[in-house]
Design a protein around this nucleic acid. Structure first.
Lengths: 231, 231
DNA sequence: CCCATAGTTCGATGCTAAACGAAGCATGAA
DNA sequence: TTCATGCTTCGTTTAGCATCGAACTATGGG
């Protein structure tokens, strides 16, 4: 009866606490099983199964069967974008559900957003690439320049392989704690993977935190300097 | 019990069809009365009143009393950002609630997003300003350059006045039909107002459409050219 | 084959919230 | 004051849906 996309359906889907917890857990970018998601949400497996079916039917999740496990991931970066926007609004409105715990600074510093690096260091990565002309914000959105391509190849990323993915190579993503852009897309994902391969950083089990080793962080800051200061 | 902002609360607030309709109506940027919003949502005034109280308490709306009317607007651009993200997801997932009517192309060409110009022409505006170096995407987010300031002053915008607003001068906003950035913030709002003052465009009552006159559109395209082509 | 684990389906229960009629305030006009 | 309009509050009805126990299916291992 009204024009426009059906917002209410999707929002109601996210609006249940159990489902919201599941989606938040999936923001880590990892594929989780139904049991793990049930635990995250604090409900029994039967209840979780019903919720997951709804989320799947609503197009928010993608599922993949492997043996007797069923792995779920977010359906795409657009879903992650909605969740980030909601988190930003909730954080801004002061609706934090719990006191900011001791591990909050870690979250603020470096965390995984869907599948790429966010937080202070994620912003630094983005800013550095933009400042040096490796990323350009042209008419067609964010793009990797010629100089950026050779930089990434020197960093041992296989751009040809990334180009075959369905998701765009570069995408901006707005950070909820900092309200700043950082790099998403398959390039953002690949960079995070490379940081892990290099031993610079690793994800902390069960959280969205990305913990850099002291040496890793130093190397990161050297490799991705900001124009003005040393960091 | 879980870390992170309370997404579910906000999503549930948006997840009711009546409330979603109200919020969608408010995306026009206009202030609407409780009665108007009741009509938009297709519910009685009592029901609407209850919904509006919840939305207000949830921090999604701002209200202002004037005589015996009560005017509602969205609480801020962050709320609009969430709604746009949801619309983008819904549109992408094919969950359009009605067939794309004849006035859809008009929406796609130029529409109001919260309070600024979106659609093809909104993207053109943004791209043109960026290409000419008037807007720069620096470390601190989107910014108006020196050249941009003098351009805006020649366009009869009072930047000193805009600087006094609480909302940031420039902000990126992602478009749901085009998936491209366009200009939000108080500058985006002021520009749209200027287009209307100049008689280039006017909003179509009761919709989000911004209709440019032929002469107005020509002037707009002349004033905001794209680098390569004439457009 | 038997058992354990992972997930689904079904049915019953109970809670929440949306909806509206009716009455109550408040504001403005005559 | 009296009336009309705009909105709120109250109380009731109704409907949807989240939750879980219990039973069922499927996969893998010994």
């Amino acid at each position: 009866m009204k024009e426009g996309p059906d917002i209410a359906r999707l929002a109601a889907l996210i609006g249940d606490p159990a489902r919201a917890n599941m989606l938040t857990a999936l923001m880590s970018g990892k594929a989780l099983t139904a049991s793990e998601l049930a635990a995250e949400a604090g409900v029994t497996l039967q209840t979780a199964s019903a919720h997951l079916a709804k989320l799947d039917q609503g197009g928010l999740l993608r599922q993949r069967k492997q043996g007797r496990h069923k792995y779920f991931t977010l359906a795409g970066s657009e879903v992650a974008a909605v969740l980030e926007a909601l988190m930003g609004l909730a954080a801004g409105a002061g609706h934090l559900r719990s006191r900011t715990g001791p591990r909050d600074p870690e979250l603020r510093k470096a965390r995984v957003c869907y599948n790429h690096l966010a937080g202070d260091l994620g912003i630094r990565l983005y800013d550095s690439l933009v400042a040096r002309g490796f990323l350009t914000l042209g008419e067609a959105g964010l793009d990797l320049s010629e100089a950026g391509r050779s930089f990434m190849q020197r960093f041992d990323l296989d751009l040809a392989d990334l180009a075959t993915r369905r998701s765009p190579l570069c995408r901006e993503c707005l950070d909820w704690s900092e309200r700043r852009s950082h790099l998403a897309g398959s390039l953002g994902r690949a960079l995070l993977g490379r940081f892990e391969d290099l031993g610079w950083a690793r994800r902390v089990e069960g959280t969205r935190i990305v913990r850099f080793s002291p040496k890793g962080e130093a190397a990161f800051r050297r490799r991705f300097p900001l124009s003005g200061q040393g960091g």
